[in-house]
Simulated scan of single mutants.
Amino acid sequence: MIEETATVVAATPDHIWVEARASSACSSCGTQDSCATSSVSKWFGMRRQQLRLPNQFASSVGEQVIIGVEDQVMVTASLAAYILPVVLMLGAAIIADVQGMSDKQQAGIALLGLLLGLLGAGVLTSNRRMNRYFQPQLLRRADTFTLRQIEFKPFTGDTP
C-alpha cells in the first residue's frame, strides 16, 4: 500500500476534500543544490491536488489524514499509462512495415498507434467503474506521537 499524508481542506458530514502536495524525488535528495534536474523541478513548483473522499472518521478542516492506494492499482495505472500506448505504437509500426509502406507512412501509422494508445488509456482509466478502482482510500487519521528518549549505557565488556 502506498500511503501519503494529506490535509483536510473542506468537510461535510458525508465527505471531505483533502489536499496532498505532489513533490518530486528531488526534495529528499542530498545533491539537489548542484543538480540540473532539481533546478528544473523547482522552476515548475509543487502541485497541489484535492480529492473528495467519504468522511468515515468524522474529520474536520485542518486535520491531517493518511490516504492510500493499493500497490496493484498503481501497477494497473502504470500499465495503462505507459505500456498500452507503446505497445499500440509498435504494433502499428510493425503492421505498416509488413504492408510495405514507406518510412514516412510507417512513422505516421506509428504516431497514430501511439495516439490511439493514449486515448485508450484515458478511456480505460476514466470510466465510472474504473474511477472508483483508482480512487485513493482514507485509511486513518495521522497520529501525532511523541518521541521518547532512549538512554544508552556505555559498553563495559561481557559482564552483565
Rank of each mutant, 00 (worst) to 15 (best):
G100C: 07
G113N: 01
T156C: 10
G113Q: 03
L119W: 07
H15Y: 06
G68P: 01
S59F: 04
D14C: 06
V123P: 02
T76F: 07
E151V: 12
V65W: 00
E19F: 03
V75C: 03
G30M: 10
S60I: 10
R148V: 09
A20L: 13
M46L: 15
G122P: 02
G30V: 09
I95V: 15
V9G: 03
F134A: 00
S23N: 13
L118C: 09
N55L: 02
M46V: 15
L124V: 11
G68W: 01
D33P: 03
D97S: 12
A6Q: 00
D14M: 12
A36N: 06
T144F: 05
V86L: 15
V9F: 03
W17K: 10
S126A: 13
V69D: 00
I2T: 06
A10V: 09
V69S: 11
V65N: 00
R148E: 14
R21N: 13
Y133M: 07
R47V: 14
Q105G: 11
D33T: 07
F152Y: 09
T146P: 04
S126G: 02
A107H: 08
D71G: 07
F145Y: 06
F44G: 05
A6N: 03
R129S: 09
R132S: 08
R48M: 13
S27G: 06
P136G: 02
S24N: 07
A6Y: 01
L79D: 02
C35E: 07
L90K: 03
F134V: 10
T156R: 13
S126V: 11
D158Q: 09
S39H: 07
E63A: 15
V87A: 06
M89L: 14
A22C: 15
R140K: 09
P154C: 08
V65R: 00
A6T: 04
C35G: 06
A92I: 00
L79K: 02
Q99R: 05
N127Y: 08
A92E: 00
I94S: 04
Q105A: 14
S24V: 11
G120S: 11
V40A: 08
I16V: 15
L115Y: 06
S126F: 08
V8P: 00
S38P: 02
S59C: 14
V98D: 01
Q32L: 13
Q49E: 13
C26G: 11
M1R: 07
P136H: 05
E151H: 09
S78C: 04
G113W: 05
Q105L: 14
R140P: 01
A80C: 13
G45N: 09
V65L: 01
A11T: 04
S24C: 11
L51R: 02
C35S: 05
E19I: 05
V69A: 04
Q64Y: 10
D14S: 13
R21P: 10
V8K: 00
F152T: 12
F134H: 01
L90A: 12
M130T: 13
P160I: 15
M46Y: 14
V65A: 00
A20Y: 11
N55A: 02
D103A: 14
G68N: 01
I150K: 10
L90Q: 03
F145R: 05
L119K: 06
Y82L: 06
R21L: 14
V73Q: 01
